[in-house]
Amino acid sequence: MSPRSVHWFKFSSPSTFYPVAGKISTVSAVIAVVLIAVGLYMSFFVAPTDYKQGEGYRIIFVHVPASWMSMFIYVVMAGWAAIGLVFNTRLSAMMAQALAPTGAMFAFLSLWTGSFWGKPMWGTWWVWDARITAELILLFLYLGYMALRSSIDDPRRGDRASAILLLVGVVNIPIIYYSVQWWNTLHQGATIKMGEQSSMDETMLITMLVMTFAFWAYAIAVTMARVRTVILERERTTTWVRELAMGER
């Protein structure tokens, strides 16, 4: 075994990861606050008014990064699930579990802001646009994962069952996305082109990137904080958690 892999497996143990997660969480939280402040300032005051869509377009600075994050987090969860199934490591399942609420939140945020954007642009709160529909299905997938997770009492069965579900989901997402696209073009439904304006201003692009990084930092901070509570809950019978609790008392 190479020294590298020893190192890696050392951090895959919940007891070693617990303090590391705490540090990562704090650092990311600070970064998130700074970036969100900068990003919001830029979206409201620096980015120019869109000549076609006016001021309402500014919601895309939240909408687009949130959509990206919701998709990305699902793939990351599936990655953790695969690692957990192959190597039987407890921490990977905990990571997937900790990521899920954040992913679901971003999916919901994306739908919410999409609907807010739709009202002034199209005059309705909901448009059966391909991307919004796909996002809705993604939210269903998140909810299904969390529902399965919470209805299995035995943590080991819960880990493995929900990991299988995640992998099935990640195989299906491209098919779902493609079929929804097909359905949408066939019915000539509304197509919203967000963030694809004819002239994407450079400051708009930078603002969007800042917001994306801010969401990244937020997701990491929240996930790490959540994984710490998951670790404590799952490992409550072990000696290291007992010692930790005694020390903090």
């Binding site: 299904g144 399965l148 579900l165 929804v180």
Partner: peptide
């Protein structure tokens, strides 16, 4: 139903 219906969409 919650798990399977989204997968039925295609």
């Amino acid at each position: 139903a919650l798990l399977v219906l989204p997968l039925y969409i295609p």
